[in-house]
C-alpha cells in the first residue's frame, strides 16, 4: 500500500463558510458509476449531511461512533489501567452485510479513538466495505491541537463545513498516513491537504 499525498490545497469551511472539498470531489467522481451506492455515516447526526447523502445513496446506514466516545461506560475502570471496551462502541454500528458498503464517512473518528481500539474499529469497517469502496476520514495535522469537539457536515456533495472550530484538545497524538496504511489489510490511502490543519484522507479498499 502507498500513501499518496494529493496536490490540492484547499481550506475546509468553518461555520457559515462551506468550502469545496477536493477529497469529496475526488470521491464522488470516483463513485460516479455507482448509481445508488450503499453509504455508512459514522458521525453524529447532522440533518444537512443526511439530506445530501439520502439524495445520492441507495441505502444510507447510520451509526454514530463519535458521540459515544464521551460515555464513561466505554471504559472498564475495574482494572488497574482503564481498558477501552471496543465491543461496546462497535455495537453502535447498524446491521450491515459484509462487503456491501461503497462509501463510509467516519469524519474525525480515527483521531478520537483510543489507540488500542484503532485496529479493531478500522478492521470492522473494512470488513463491511466492498472491494473498491472508499473510506472518507478527516485527520488532523500535528500542529492542530484543538478541535476534537468540532462537528462536520456536508453542504452539498462536495461542500464540507465545520459547524464550529472546537476548543477541546485532541486526546491522542496525530495519526500519520503510514499508521492508517499499516492497520488495514488491503487498500490504498489518498490524502488531500488543506489549509485548515485537517487532512482529507480517503482509503480505497
Amino acid at each position: 500500500m502507498q500513501a499518496r499525498p494529493g496536490r490540492s490545497d484547499t481550506g475546509i469551511g468553518s461555520q457559515n463558510a462551506p468550502a469545496s472539498s477536493f477529497g469529496l470531489r475526488w470521491l464522488w467522481e470516483y463513485a460516479q458509476d455507482i448509481p445508488r451506492p450503499y453509504v455508512l455515516d459514522c458521525g453524529p447526526i447532522r440533518s444537512a449531511t443526511l439530506n445530501v447523502l439520502l439524495g445520492r445513496s441507495g441505502r444510507l446506514y447510520r451509526g454514530d461512533l463519535i458521540s459515544p466516545l464521551k460515555r464513561p461506560e466505554l471504559w472498564d475502570r475495574t482494572r488497574k489501567t482503564p481498558v477501552f471496551r471496543t465491543e461496546l462502541l462497535l455495537a453502535e454500528l447498524p446491521s450491515v452485510a459484509p462487503s456491501s458498503l461503497s462509501i463510509v464517512f467516519c469524519w474525525q473518528l480515527l483521531d478520537l479513538l483510543p489507540r488500542e481500539a484503532l485496529a479493531d474499529v478500522l478492521l470492522q469497517i473494512h470488513k463491511l466495505m466492498e472491494t473498491g469502496a472508499v473510506l472518507f476520514c478527516l485527520l488532523r495535522e500535528p500542529r492542530l491541537e484543538t478541535g476534537a469537539d468540532c462537528l462536520w457536515q456536508l453542504d452539498g456533495l462536495t461542500g464540507l463545513t465545520r459547524t464550529h472550530d472546537g476548543m477541546a484538545a485532541f486526546p491522542y497524538p496525530a495519526l500519520s498516513n503510514r499508521e492508517i496504511d499499516r492497520l488495514l489489510p488491503t487498500g490504498s490511502v489518498k490524502t488531500f491537504l488543506t489549509r485548515s490543519g485537517w487532512r482529507e484522507v480517503l482509503v480505497v479498499k
Binding site: 447526526i45 441507495g58 441505502r59 444510507l60 453502535e92 454500528l93 450491515v96
Partner: peptide
C-alpha cells in the same frame, strides 16, 4: 428527516 440531536441507528431507504 432527522433533526440534529436525535438518535438513530439503522438504515434508510
Amino acid at each position: 428527516a432527522i433533526e440534529d440531536g436525535a438518535y438513530f441507528k439503522g438504515s434508510i431507504e
